[in-house]
Computed example of a mutant assay.
Amino acid sequence: MDLGLTGKVAIVTGSARGLGAATARRLAQEGAKVVITDINAELAQATAKALQAEGLAAHCIVGDITKAADVQRLVDDTVAHFGGVHVLVNNAGAPRDRYLVKMSEDDWDLVMNVMLKGAFLATRAVMPRYIEQGWGRVINISSRAHLGNPTQANYSAAKAGLIGMAKALSLEEGRYGVTVNCVAPGFMETEMIQALPTYETIKEKAIAAQPVKRAGRPEDVADAVAFLASERASFISGEVLHVTGGRYG
Protein backbone atom coordinates (compact mmCIF):
# COMPACT_ATOMS: atom_id res chain seq x y z
CA MET A 1 0.00 0.00 0.00
CA ASP A 2 1.42 3.34 -1.06
CA LEU A 3 1.36 5.70 1.90
CA GLY A 4 2.04 8.75 -0.22
CA LEU A 5 5.15 9.75 1.72
CA THR A 6 7.60 9.80 -1.18
CA GLY A 7 9.40 13.13 -1.20
CA LYS A 8 7.89 14.31 2.07
CA VAL A 9 10.33 15.70 4.66
CA ALA A 10 10.04 14.41 8.23
CA ILE A 11 11.65 15.57 11.46
CA VAL A 12 11.77 12.97 14.23
CA THR A 13 12.91 14.36 17.57
CA GLY A 14 14.93 12.17 19.92
CA SER A 15 15.75 9.89 17.01
CA ALA A 16 19.32 8.85 17.80
CA ARG A 17 18.08 5.46 19.00
CA GLY A 18 15.06 3.48 20.15
CA LEU A 19 11.56 4.36 18.99
CA GLY A 20 12.76 7.54 17.28
CA ALA A 21 15.40 5.79 15.20
CA ALA A 22 12.98 3.02 14.20
CA THR A 23 10.38 5.61 13.23
CA ALA A 24 12.85 7.59 11.14
CA ARG A 25 13.92 4.42 9.35
CA ARG A 26 10.32 3.42 8.60
CA LEU A 27 9.45 6.86 7.21
CA ALA A 28 12.59 6.82 5.08
CA GLN A 29 11.73 3.35 3.78
CA GLU A 30 8.40 4.82 2.66
CA GLY A 31 10.27 7.41 0.60
CA ALA A 32 10.41 10.31 3.05
CA LYS A 33 13.51 12.38 3.62
CA VAL A 34 14.20 12.21 7.34
CA VAL A 35 16.01 14.43 9.79
CA ILE A 36 17.63 12.68 12.72
CA THR A 37 17.80 15.11 15.61
CA ASP A 38 18.93 14.55 19.17
CA ILE A 39 21.03 16.15 21.89
CA ASN A 40 23.44 13.19 21.68
CA ALA A 41 25.58 14.17 18.70
CA GLU A 42 27.57 10.94 18.42
CA LEU A 43 24.54 8.65 18.40
CA ALA A 44 22.51 10.93 16.13
CA GLN A 45 25.25 11.12 13.55
CA ALA A 46 25.75 7.34 13.67
CA THR A 47 22.04 6.73 13.12
CA ALA A 48 21.91 9.13 10.17
CA LYS A 49 24.97 7.47 8.62
CA ALA A 50 23.42 4.02 9.09
CA LEU A 51 20.30 5.11 7.21
CA GLN A 52 22.39 6.69 4.47
CA ALA A 53 24.32 3.42 4.15
CA GLU A 54 20.98 1.70 3.47
CA GLY A 55 20.38 4.09 0.60
CA LEU A 56 17.84 6.16 2.53
CA ALA A 57 17.60 9.96 2.57
CA ALA A 58 18.71 11.07 6.04
CA HIS A 59 20.33 14.14 7.54
CA CYS A 60 21.54 14.80 11.09
CA ILE A 61 20.93 18.05 13.00
CA VAL A 62 22.10 18.10 16.62
CA GLY A 63 20.25 20.29 19.08
CA ASP A 64 18.46 20.71 22.39
CA ILE A 65 14.70 20.41 21.91
CA THR A 66 14.06 22.50 25.05
CA LYS A 67 15.77 25.59 23.58
CA ALA A 68 13.72 27.75 21.19
CA ALA A 69 16.78 28.88 19.22
CA ASP A 70 17.91 25.28 18.66
CA VAL A 71 14.43 24.27 17.54
CA GLN A 72 14.13 27.14 15.09
CA ARG A 73 17.56 26.27 13.71
CA LEU A 74 16.42 22.66 13.37
CA VAL A 75 13.46 23.66 11.21
CA ASP A 76 15.39 26.25 9.20
CA ASP A 77 18.25 23.84 8.52
CA THR A 78 15.79 21.10 7.55
CA VAL A 79 14.16 23.39 4.99
CA ALA A 80 17.55 24.53 3.70
CA HIS A 81 18.79 20.95 3.29
CA PHE A 82 15.68 19.15 2.02
CA GLY A 83 13.57 22.00 0.68
CA GLY A 84 10.66 21.83 3.09
CA VAL A 85 9.06 20.11 6.07
CA HIS A 86 5.85 18.10 6.10
CA VAL A 87 5.91 15.70 9.06
CA LEU A 88 6.92 16.28 12.67
CA VAL A 89 7.18 13.40 15.13
CA ASN A 90 7.49 14.67 18.71
CA ASN A 91 9.28 11.67 20.17
CA ALA A 92 11.98 13.13 22.46
CA GLY A 93 11.66 12.01 26.07
CA ALA A 94 13.58 11.84 29.33
CA PRO A 95 12.09 9.73 32.15
CA ARG A 96 13.00 10.46 35.76
CA ASP A 97 10.97 7.93 37.74
CA ARG A 98 10.55 8.52 41.47
CA TYR A 99 7.85 8.20 44.07
CA LEU A 100 6.32 11.64 44.47
CA VAL A 101 7.77 12.24 47.94
CA LYS A 102 11.25 11.62 46.50
CA MET A 103 10.72 13.50 43.23
CA SER A 104 12.74 16.70 42.97
CA GLU A 105 11.75 19.82 41.08
CA ASP A 106 14.55 19.02 38.66
CA ASP A 107 13.03 15.57 38.03
CA TRP A 108 9.69 17.21 37.27
CA ASP A 109 11.08 20.07 35.19
CA LEU A 110 13.36 17.92 33.02
CA VAL A 111 10.54 15.57 31.99
CA MET A 112 8.12 18.44 31.32
CA ASN A 113 10.68 20.47 29.40
CA VAL A 114 11.85 17.68 27.11
CA MET A 115 8.43 16.19 26.39
CA LEU A 116 5.93 19.03 26.62
CA LYS A 117 7.96 22.17 26.06
CA GLY A 118 9.97 20.45 23.35
CA ALA A 119 6.80 19.37 21.54
CA PHE A 120 5.37 22.87 21.89
CA LEU A 121 8.49 24.53 20.49
CA ALA A 122 8.86 22.12 17.59
CA THR A 123 5.19 22.22 16.63
CA ARG A 124 5.11 26.00 16.84
CA ALA A 125 8.18 26.20 14.61
CA VAL A 126 6.78 24.02 11.80
CA MET A 127 3.18 25.24 11.88
CA PRO A 128 3.59 28.45 9.81
CA ARG A 129 5.09 26.36 6.99
CA TYR A 130 2.28 23.81 7.27
CA ILE A 131 -0.33 26.54 7.05
CA GLU A 132 1.35 28.16 4.07
CA GLN A 133 1.57 24.89 2.11
CA GLY A 134 -1.86 23.64 3.21
CA TRP A 135 -0.56 20.25 4.40
CA GLY A 136 1.16 18.93 7.48
CA ARG A 137 1.34 16.13 10.00
CA VAL A 138 2.17 16.25 13.70
CA ILE A 139 2.40 12.96 15.59
CA ASN A 140 3.09 13.09 19.32
CA ILE A 141 4.56 9.97 20.92
CA SER A 142 2.55 9.63 24.10
CA SER A 143 2.43 6.41 26.15
CA ARG A 144 0.05 4.03 27.84
CA ALA A 145 1.38 5.79 30.93
CA HIS A 146 -1.03 8.64 30.21
CA LEU A 147 -3.47 6.42 32.13
CA GLY A 148 -1.15 6.59 35.13
CA ASN A 149 1.80 4.62 36.46
CA PRO A 150 3.24 4.57 39.98
CA THR A 151 6.59 6.42 40.30
CA GLN A 152 5.76 8.28 37.08
CA ALA A 153 3.67 11.27 38.11
CA ASN A 154 5.88 13.52 35.98
CA TYR A 155 6.06 11.14 32.99
CA SER A 156 2.35 10.29 33.07
CA ALA A 157 1.41 13.98 33.31
CA ALA A 158 3.65 14.87 30.37
CA LYS A 159 2.33 12.03 28.22
CA ALA A 160 -1.25 13.01 29.04
CA GLY A 161 -0.34 16.59 28.19
CA LEU A 162 0.81 15.54 24.72
CA ILE A 163 -2.64 14.08 24.12
CA GLY A 164 -4.37 17.26 25.28
CA MET A 165 -2.09 19.32 23.06
CA ALA A 166 -2.86 17.12 20.05
CA LYS A 167 -6.61 17.37 20.57
CA ALA A 168 -6.47 21.16 20.92
CA LEU A 169 -4.24 21.61 17.87
CA SER A 170 -6.36 19.28 15.76
CA LEU A 171 -9.22 21.74 16.28
CA GLU A 172 -7.05 24.78 15.56
CA GLU A 173 -5.21 23.57 12.50
CA GLY A 174 -7.53 21.20 10.65
CA ARG A 175 -8.80 23.97 8.38
CA TYR A 176 -5.28 24.23 6.94
CA GLY A 177 -4.99 20.58 5.94
CA VAL A 178 -2.99 19.77 9.07
CA THR A 179 -3.69 16.69 11.20
CA VAL A 180 -2.41 16.19 14.75
CA ASN A 181 -2.50 12.77 16.40
CA CYS A 182 -0.84 10.68 19.07
CA VAL A 183 0.63 7.20 19.26
CA ALA A 184 0.62 5.69 22.75
CA PRO A 185 3.04 2.75 23.04
CA GLY A 186 2.92 0.15 25.75
CA PHE A 187 5.90 -2.00 26.76
CA MET A 188 8.53 -1.83 24.03
CA GLU A 189 11.84 -3.64 23.79
CA THR A 190 14.17 -0.69 23.33
CA GLU A 191 17.86 -0.47 24.12
CA MET A 192 17.10 1.66 27.17
CA ILE A 193 14.67 -0.89 28.63
CA GLN A 194 16.88 -3.85 27.78
CA ALA A 195 19.78 -2.25 29.66
CA LEU A 196 17.86 -2.18 32.96
CA PRO A 197 18.93 -4.80 35.54
CA THR A 198 15.25 -5.65 36.10
CA TYR A 199 14.48 -5.94 32.37
CA GLU A 200 13.36 -9.59 32.39
CA THR A 201 11.01 -9.00 35.33
CA ILE A 202 9.54 -5.89 33.70
CA LYS A 203 9.05 -7.78 30.43
CA GLU A 204 7.38 -10.74 32.13
CA LYS A 205 4.92 -8.53 34.03
CA ALA A 206 4.10 -6.46 30.97
CA ILE A 207 3.35 -9.48 28.78
CA ALA A 208 1.23 -11.03 31.54
CA ALA A 209 -0.87 -7.84 31.68
CA GLN A 210 -1.63 -7.61 27.95
CA PRO A 211 -3.80 -9.77 25.69
CA VAL A 212 -1.20 -10.09 22.91
CA LYS A 213 1.48 -12.28 24.43
CA ARG A 214 4.68 -10.81 23.07
CA ALA A 215 6.81 -7.77 23.76
CA GLY A 216 6.28 -4.72 21.62
CA ARG A 217 8.94 -3.80 19.12
CA PRO A 218 10.03 -0.31 18.05
CA GLU A 219 8.88 -1.21 14.55
CA ASP A 220 5.31 -1.58 15.86
CA VAL A 221 5.32 2.08 16.85
CA ALA A 222 7.09 3.10 13.64
CA ASP A 223 4.38 1.46 11.53
CA ALA A 224 1.66 3.32 13.44
CA VAL A 225 3.44 6.64 12.97
CA ALA A 226 3.97 6.01 9.26
CA PHE A 227 0.25 5.39 8.82
CA LEU A 228 -0.77 8.56 10.68
CA ALA A 229 1.78 10.55 8.67
CA SER A 230 0.41 9.26 5.40
CA GLU A 231 -2.24 10.28 2.92
CA ARG A 232 -4.18 7.22 4.05
CA ALA A 233 -4.84 8.93 7.39
CA SER A 234 -5.87 12.33 6.00
CA PHE A 235 -9.30 12.21 7.69
CA ILE A 236 -7.96 11.21 11.12
CA SER A 237 -7.08 13.95 13.58
CA GLY A 238 -7.15 14.43 17.34
CA GLU A 239 -6.90 10.68 17.91
CA VAL A 240 -4.79 8.44 20.13
CA LEU A 241 -3.61 5.16 18.60
CA HIS A 242 -2.61 2.76 21.37
CA VAL A 243 0.13 0.31 20.41
CA THR A 244 -0.01 -1.77 23.56
CA GLY A 245 -0.90 -5.33 22.62
CA GLY A 246 -4.41 -4.59 23.87
CA ARG A 247 -3.42 -3.34 27.32
CA TYR A 248 -5.05 -0.14 28.55
CA GLY A 249 -5.06 -0.37 32.34
Rank of each mutant, 00 (worst) to 15 (best):
V75E: 05
M127Q: 13
V126D: 02
A68M: 10
G164H: 03
K67G: 10
F120N: 11
V114T: 13
N140T: 07
A94C: 10
A92L: 08
A145K: 06
R144W: 02
I163Q: 02
V126G: 01
L116T: 01
Y130G: 07
A57C: 11
G164M: 14
Y155T: 04
A94R: 15
G136I: 03
G93D: 00
Q152C: 04
I65R: 13
H81L: 12
A166E: 02
Y130T: 07
D70N: 13
G55W: 15
Q133T: 13
L169P: 09
N154Y: 01
A158G: 00
I65K: 06
P95I: 07
D70E: 13
N149W: 00
R137Q: 02
G55F: 15
N149P: 09
V111Q: 02
Y130D: 04
A160D: 11
K167R: 15
W108P: 04
S104E: 12
P95K: 01
D97Q: 03
L56D: 08
A157Q: 02
T66A: 05
V111A: 04
V75Y: 01
Y99E: 09
D109W: 03
I131D: 07
G55A: 15
K117C: 09
A160W: 13
T151V: 15
S156I: 02
T123F: 08
I163C: 12
L100N: 11
M127P: 06
V79Y: 00
V89M: 04
E105Y: 11
A119P: 06
D70H: 07
A69F: 04
K117D: 10
I65A: 02
G63R: 02
G136Q: 04
I163A: 09
A168F: 12
G63F: 09
G84S: 02
N149D: 13
D76E: 14
F82I: 14
M127E: 14
G161R: 12
